[in-house]
């Protein structure tokens, strides 16, 4: 199942401003592994993960057609 990945803030310096599609990822851990291989600069960068706008922790199963957002530390205001 394809997963669409969007990033914000400092992570756009690494992955750009357009969504990236990962063809097949079973869960968020698998997804991050694949992203780390494709974008080595992503490794060890601080961010949290949101699946379909909900913040998740740990291994989260991706059911297909999810949008996964990588969110670096917030800096509003």
């Amino acid at each position: 199942m394809p997963v669409q990945v969007i990033v914000f803030g400092q992570l756009t310096d690494i992955m750009g401003n357009s969504p990236v599609t990962i063809e097949n990822a079973v869960d968020t851990t698998d997804l991050i592994d694949q992203l780390n291989q494709r974008y080595p600069a992503l490794v060890n960068k601080p961010y949290i993960i949101a699946v379909d706008k909900q913040i998740v922790t740990g291994h989260t199963t991706l059911s297909g057609n999810n949008t996964v957002a990588l969110l670096p530390p917030f800096a509003g205001g």
Binding site: L71, F74, A75, G76
Partner: peptide
Amino acid sequence: IKAELPIWG
């Protein structure tokens, strides 16, 4: 707002 909204500068 500062802690929880996904906003970047």
